[in-house]
Design a protein around this nucleic acid. Sequence first.
DNA 1: CAGTGGTCTAGACCACTGG
DNA 2: CAGTGGTCTAGACCACTGC
Lengths: 267, 267
Amino acid sequence: MQTTPESSTESSQPQTNAATSNTANVTPAFSPLYQQIKGLILGSLRDGEWKPGEAIPSEMDLALRFRVSQGTVRKAIDELAAENLLLRRQGKGTFVATHAEQQVQFRFLKLVPDSGTRGSEGPAQRDIIECRRARATADVSRALALRSGDTVLQARRVLSFGGMPVILEDIWLPAAPFKGLTAERLANYQGPMYALFETEFNVRMVRAEEKIRAISATEIHAALLKVALGTPLLSVERIAYTYQDEPMELRRGYYRTDTHHYHNVIN
Amino acid sequence: MQTTPESSTESSQPQTNAATSNTANVTPAFSPLYQQIKGLILGSLRDGEWKPGEAIPSEMDLALRFRVSQGTVRKAIDELAAENLLLRRQGKGTFVATHAEQQVQFRFLKLVPDSGTRGSEGPAQRDIIECRRARATADVSRALALRSGDTVLQARRVLSFGGMPVILEDIWLPAAPFKGLTAERLANYQGPMYALFETEFNVRMVRAEEKIRAISATEIHAALLKVALGTPLLSVERIAYTYQDEPMELRRGYYRTDTHHYHNVIN
DNA sequence: CAGTGGTCTAGACCACTGG
DNA sequence: CAGTGGTCTAGACCACTGC
């Protein structure tokens, strides 16, 4: 069972680094075995071999498949779990992380109510204001690594908590991976938008960067968030990435911070 | 050398969990060996057995000292390194992390210039506006886990980059651990305030939480940051913790975001 | 009870640093 | 060259889950 030849269908064997006889090598490009294994697992995740929420093969299975010891697979999985790409559950298995789980539902949304914990206000209400196709402007195409003029989907929505509008968001998505996304599908879907992206478009958001500023509410902000013109708002520009650091979403959020605040932990 | 009795001066031996014969135990309180080792190392860090910037004993030495295998020590150190309490350097040793290092100089300050990278504006200029002793108000004492009316040190300063005032900060510190801190010592010290805390008061900031809001500049903000009254500013309230999640600093920062932005990464 | 992840060990060897 | 952290393996056993 250990090394039957039929296992040769999987991706390339890890390379040995034992033959490091090169002397004048500026960049030895030494890569530990477990990093190579990690790369192979990442590739399978990206290619959708295992979908969000599903279990991946057991450590022993992966060890046999990659012809390495269980400990090496373990270290690769450890890192992927630390990056929130995988989720380990003792006694059950290792699962592909998903935005559809209750516990990590709002992992990317760092705005919380001043008093009480998130969810104490009841479920979030999502109102799609508009959703249309457009040509990427210069800044949008740069953020999404597209060519200027490429087609993008643009959406605007308001999030309300406890009946109060709190967040206004403008969202840009590259049109190609999200073919078929309409205002109706957005409006009808209950749950986090990133969960919809996973199930409907096989796009999993893995990491995000945010640039935060303080701005004054314009007329548009004031009307949609029901605040006075000039009210200070948090401007949160987010670029979300899928596997391989590929940018997949630009989102400009405007947060009211009279009843909520952006919560951040620095380690 | 392996188990000479004189090594019995150190903290308690790790306990074996093999005798788990208790059946009706609601909370088995099972704690892996490496977690116990981690706790012992943490204790030594807190007690100052190894100071910031110094090397801790090698993995082998610690393994002998705690009577466990090197791999177990390794896993404990791995976690402490992941939490930025320790810093591993291959071939050299494992070091107690410090705020005095160039690379992690501004780990807690997430405001960066819109263009260019941090440091492109030259060194930060720190101007102490005031520093005095005071009684803790209700909110300050709550944040610092003090009793209302306890003595605190309060400081106000302005940080400027490239000659422009960008950050106004009000800082509250419990008086006891920072005995002897004066405006002069703050003003004369070149370098990050947290580095001073380490070297002068043996207080190491390990973790912080921030609550961020958008506000309008008051007259004080306007005067010290040289902006117009009512300019939107980022309000950043930070509580910084030492080892054991002990709160050690309350800091209210007011950031100009016309030339800088708060940068955050979500994993 | 079998299968999964989690812990712990012991040993070998590699990569990196500095004297 | 010795000493450090880093990798990899193999095996034993433990904790947890679900059938």
